[in-house]
């Protein structure tokens, strides 16, 4: 789902606060293993910040091109990931590219195949997970 700028900024502030307290903790921590795990957390934080920045940029781009390519369900059905074609799936009216998504090997994922509207299937397993923000958007399903 596309997040609003406000939610993105709130999350960024949260991450920055967490990181600051982690950094304070690092100065005092005697155990190198615990420190390693805090460092991992910090690096996850920077990764998420990076991700959030990309989302901000993407939001901007969306506004610049309000009419992304419109894709009909017939057109979508060509993008099965077979015969050299890319693999697209639609969720909630948006078409995503899963061609090179690791979880979609051979354009299949837990018995699902690409080239379809998988809104219901997605909701049945991934409701509330932030998975879609990481996928490349190719257009709108019309």
């Amino acid at each position: 789902m596309i997040k609003s700028e406000k939610t993105i900024c709130q999350r960024m502030k949260q991450i920055i606060e967490e990181s600051e307290s982690n950094i304070k903790m690092l100065f005092k921590m005697p155990c190198i293993y615990a420190r390693t795990s805090v460092l991992f957390e910090l690096s996850a934080n920077t990764a998420e910040l990076n991700e959030l920045c990309s989302q901000l940029i993407e939001n901007e781009n969306r506004q610049v091109q309000p009419t992304q390519s419109n894709i009909t369900i017939e057109q979508l059905s060509q993008f099965t990931g077979k015969n050299g074609n890319p693999a697209y799936v639609a969720v909630n009216g948006i078409v995503y590219d899963v061609t090179n998504n690791a979880a979609w090997a051979a354009a299949t994922h837990f018995g699902l195949t690409a080239g379809k509207d998988l809104t219901d299937e997605f909701a049945s397993c991934h409701a509330g997970h932030s998975i879609l923000d990481k996928l490349k958007v190719v257009g709108k399903l019309i």
């Binding site: 990931g81 050299g84 074609n85 061609t99 354009a107 299949t108 837990f110 018995g111």
Partner: peptide, 16 residues
């Protein structure tokens, strides 16, 4: 979900 959800085990007809 194995085996049904993990099929096909091998596919030669693939994406670009």
């Amino acid at each position: 979900g194995f085996p049904d959800s993990m099929e096909p085990f091998i596919s030669y007809d693939t994406t670009r």
